[in-house]
């Protein structure tokens, strides 16, 4: 009758960083994804696909580092290789594995909208910042996007 709905994600594990808490986040009027202040807490774009949904890209994002809180676990994204496993646990206790297929750096203005697509094959995108840091604007030049597929 109704397509099965997936519970919200609550934790992400990388190969060397387990059970990073995940909270739901949305888009501000500026178009920016609102992220938790602490790099240790990641945001799931809640109006997009959920990890485990039958279609669409589930997006989890987090600060690479913070002027207030320092660097966070997503610095480890640069260590990821194709085939590495990322694991997401949802609020119902279900765990799902995803296998890394790519890691790409985009200059921020060139971040592809299709990273956030709600249609298409089910995938996971983990997004953070990277590249050169502009100290005056406290901003990185790039977005780093790790894509993974259900494993």
């Amino acid at each position: 009758m109704t397509p099965p709905v997936v519970a919200a994600p609550v934790a992400l594990s990388l190969p060397d960083a387990t059970d990073l808490p995940v909270v739901p986040v949305g888009v501000l009027p500026s178009g920016a994804l609102q992220l938790p202040d602490r790099p240790t807490v990641l945001g799931w774009f809640a109006a997009g696909a959920a990890p485990g949904a039958q279609a669409g890209t589930a997006v989890i994002a987090g600060h690479l580092d913070s002027a207030v809180f320092g660097p966070g676990p997503l610095v480890r994204l640069s260590n990821l290789r194709v085939g590495d496993v990322l694991q997401l646990t949802d609020a119902a206790g279900v765990s799902r594995r995803f296998s890394v297929v790519s890691r790409t750096s985009y200059p921020k203005p060139a971040l592809p909208p299709e990273v956030f697509r709600r249609d298409g094959p089910p995938r996971l995108a983990v997004v953070t910042c990277g590249g050169a840091f502009d100290a005056a604007r406290r901003s990185y030049a790039d977005n780093v996007v790790v894509l993974a597929v259900p494993a």
Partner: peptide, 27 residues
């Protein structure tokens, strides 16, 4: 809720780093 969220549109930017501590080698 999804209708309300849709009014903001999809994310156009992901500002995910303010510290610079992890700035890469090229910089």
């Amino acid at each position: 809720l999804r209708n309300a969220a849709q009014k903001y549109g999809g994310p156009r930017s992901v500002p995910a780093g303010t510290g610079g501590q992890a700035a890469d080698d090229s910089f």
